[in-house]
Design a protein around this nucleic acid. Structure first.
Lengths: 257, 257
DNA sequence: CGTCCTATTGATGGGGTTCAAGGCGTGTGG
DNA sequence: CCACACGCCTTGAACCCCATCAATAGGACG
């Protein structure tokens, strides 16, 4: 882990992943988004594999993923890890910090990672004066809740190949939101072991089932680039339904403005 | 489904499950809680098995469980059901309605059920004037998030008997909160099929593993009454850790007052 | 007393794990 | 520039947990 201040300077503010993600859903003005960007903050760079926040750690900063991938995970007493949620650029790491003192899970850097830290009091102050922004951040947490519920269905009632297809599709949609995927491809920078811990499978089985997807001509691989060559058929195999991401322009309640 | 107005009259307001649950965590005054109780509302009774809210249905009421058990669930295209979360008295059914127009899952009555409906605008108005109540309701949603994450770990990385033990323990702690359990026992009013759909198992396997828990003298059954005869050993078997319920008096951030 | 829902029990089979090697690419240092 | 190590993926064989199917038994209730 090292200081990453210089990284923030290089980012074109207009296109940060967080802005792309929020912009899509609320009637946010550029001014609102700029206020969010201009909140006093620190940025810290983590290396792949670093523990970002420990379970039970007392936290008092809201954190955003600027770049890189991370995970919420739990390590079991008798060994083994379950990744509960994969965090992508533009995701909020610690909304719960606004209410809770302790995190009930670990946050780990799955790749090299840059995280932005904001003071809860600063953010709450901004939200009070910017209701649209409140809606947008609230929507973001509801979207994560939808993904958590979907993860339970995925692990509880789908076969290995279906889980894999489902996860690949969900990641694709999420990366599209933050302009880090093309219509049918993206870089998957995590190992099959990480995928297995997210899907409740063994690494070996992920390997064979991924190759099965390739053989069925639903997926192509070139190094870490994943290409979804037949999204419709893949979605049919996975029983994938994007409604849990609440993306449509009619997804928000009207009475919030 | 039928009108259940009479049920509300019979409840002693001071001891509703919702009050028991919220009271535990925030510096709520009796007055705050009474304001919540006195919000304009309807109450509706559902029969066991009824669909309370359909997936994708346009919702505009916040709903609370007054009595009975319910579930958030998903039905798969190729058959099969996954119960994502079990809802107990005092739980909030539809917080997301404050932001989202559509529910991404079904809500089903697992037993006969009484639900209270409140207008979002009324609730939001109350929250604006009662910040402690905002904290308490927010805490409640964070608690459910913690349980969703724990459910992923439970299904993804635990064996059948561990899952079962874990669920029995979690339900026990939750029922304790709303004064519907003794130190070591409670009524479990749901079938093994429901349990299997919550744990990602088959009904038959739940049957045998439950009997295994009884044979190991960790659990006793008398009809639908479950007695946890050795909670410590059961918790050890399940690797159960209550921290995801955020129950401690030091679980809330101080800056929220 | 019969009916329906729920739990039990046993046999069979498969999906996924586990263990153990081997292969492949990549970066690093001599 | 090669040697070597290391991370990551692959491959194969044996095993086991859990699903599935089928049939029975028990309980609650009208």
């Amino acid at each position: 882990m090292g200081e990453g201040e210089s990284a923030s300077e290089r980012l074109d503010v207009a296109y940060t992943p967080l802005r792309s993600r929020l912009q899509h859903f609320s009637h946010l003005t550029d001014l609102d988004l700029e206020k969010l960007d201009r909140l006093p903050h620190d940025q810290v760079a983590f290396d792949k594999g670093d523990l970002v926040v420990a379970r039970g750690e007392e936290m008092n900063r809201v954190m955003f993923v600027v770049s890189g991938w991370a995970s919420r995970s739990r390590h079991l007493k008798r060994g083994g890890r379950q990744i509960v949620h994969i965090l992508l650029p533009g995701d909020i790491l610690t909304t719960e910090v606004l209410v809770l003192k302790h995190l009930d899970h670990e946050i780990e850097a799955l790749t090299d990672l840059v995280v932005r830290f904001v003071m809860p009091s600063d953010l709450m102050g901004l939200l009070r004066s910017t209701p649209h922004l409140t809606t947008a951040l609230w929507w973001a947490t509801e979207q994560e809740d939808g993904m958590l519920r979907e993860a339970i269905v995925r692990i509880g009632r789908r076969s290995a190949i279906e889980r894999l297809a489902h996860l690949l599709l969900e990641i694709h949609r999420r990366l599209l939101l933050v302009h880090q995927a093309t219509d049918d491809a993206y870089v998957l920078p995590i190992s099959q072991e990480v995928i297995s811990d997210a899907l409740g499978l063994s690494q070996y089985h992920v390997s064979t089932q991924l190759r099965e997807l390739v053989e069925q001509k639903l997926v192509e691989r070139q190094g870490s680039v994943i290409r979804l060559t037949n999204i419709d058929q893949l979605a049919d195999l996975a029983d994938f339904d994007i409604s849990h991401l609440h993306l449509g322009s009619d997804s928000l309640q009207k009475f919030l403005g």
